[in-house]
């Protein structure tokens, strides 16, 4: 494989469960050595896509390669070269850190096993806790253990499914430092997340909603492509109307795709600038608020994209 070949290249991947299309004709390319952020609301098909990529699920249709290997026919080979970190901690809670890593290293039949386990423990700062039971670790340490187990066999691609969910900010920051260090060593990383700050740490992001890829590119590209116009209204403290009243008054007006309170401020925006300005006109003149046009954030873009796509999962108990 040449350096230019993508780590992941899939076309038209579809998967449905019980008549519900969870992944819908998804095409995605992830360049080698990059960190690709995988974003989207809950149930948008991120986990299913990741499972399709590593062969845990068989696609209904579509084709593609992972590290140059066919995802349909070569998944055993793919599995040897990827590290997959599941959303839920999936190592043995009744085994210690080092016992878990020993297990993984034996399963992968690693040469120079002991040295690699020791080096990985060292790299992730787990050496001092090596004999603690995994079940007794806090969320942040569990996640470190999971990452350690995923990179032990020196994979070329990491698939991380919401690795930082429920982890404190400091542990998250340290985790991302590790991810960047790994990418600097040449690893490709596909990481799904709900955190906007994490999305901004990625080289590129892909936004998925209801099984479809809605946006792709660098953060700046995705924001620009959305074509959003946003305003922030600050309560001037002089008038009778409060921010909450303004939010109620604005809700449902044409052109307002998002209305979100942030403390004493209200953030509004829409895809159609002219229509937005028209709807806002009476309020812009209201002296109760100080208005300011500002640049849309990534979160604005996502909420806007989410509002546009339709939920095909509504109704029915599982």
């Amino acid at each position: 494989m040449t350096a230019a070949a993508p780590a992941i290249a899939v076309e038209g991947l579809s998967k449905s469960f019980g008549g519900r299309t969870v992944v819908d004709a998804l095409s995605l390319t992830v360049p080698a050595g990059k960190i690709m952020g995988f974003l989207g609301p809950n149930g948008s098909g991120k986990t299913t896509t990741i499972r399709l990529l590593c062969g845990l699920l068989t696609p209904d249709s579509g084709r593609g390669t992972c590290l140059g290997l066919d995802i349909l026919t070569q998944s055993p080979e793919i599995r040897r070269q990827i590290g997959y970190m599941t959303q839920k901690f999936s190592f043995y809670e009744d085994l210690s850190i080092v016992e878990n890593l020993d297990f993984v290293s034996r399963v992968f039949d690693l040469a120079d096993r002991k040295r690699k386990v020791a080096a990985t423990l060292e790299r992730l700062g787990l050496a001092d806790r090596r004999d603690q039971l995994a079940g007794q670790l806090s969320g942040g340490w569990k996640q470190r253990l999971a990452l350690a187990a995923c990179i032990l066999h020196e994979p070329r691609l990491l698939l991380l499914d919401e690795p930082t969910a429920g982890v404190d900010p400091k542990a998250r920051r340290e985790f991302w430092e590790q991810i960047h260090a790994l990418a600097a060593d040449g690893l490709t990383v596909l990481v799904s997340t709900h955190y906007m700050d994490e999305a901004e740490r990625c080289h590129e992001i892909a936004y998925l909603a209801y099984g479809r890829l809605l946006a792709r590119g660098t953060v700046a590209e995705v924001i620009a492509a959305a074509g959003l116009t946003t305003f922030t209204a600050q309560d001037s403290g002089t008038g009778a109307m409060r921010i909450a009243d303004l939010a109620r008054a604005l809700a449902g007006l044409p052109g307002l795709d998002l209305v979100a309170p942030f403390g004493s401020a209200l953030h509004v925006g829409g895809g159609d600038a002219a229509l937005l300005r028209h709807s806002l006109a009476p309020f812009l003149a209201n002296p109760d608020f100080v208005w300011r046009e500002d640049a849309p954030t990534l979160e604005d873009v996502f909420i806007h994209l989410m509002g546009r796509s339709t939920d095909n999962f509504a109704g029915g108990a599982r």
């Binding site: 590593c54 845990l56 055993p76 599995r79 990827i82 599941t86 999936s90 399963v107």
Partner: peptide
């Protein structure tokens, strides 16, 4: 039940 199966499956076993 504990979710460790997913990990077992993805490993070369």
């Amino acid at each position: 039940e504990r979710g460790t199966m997913e990990n077992l499956l993805v490993m070369p076993l």
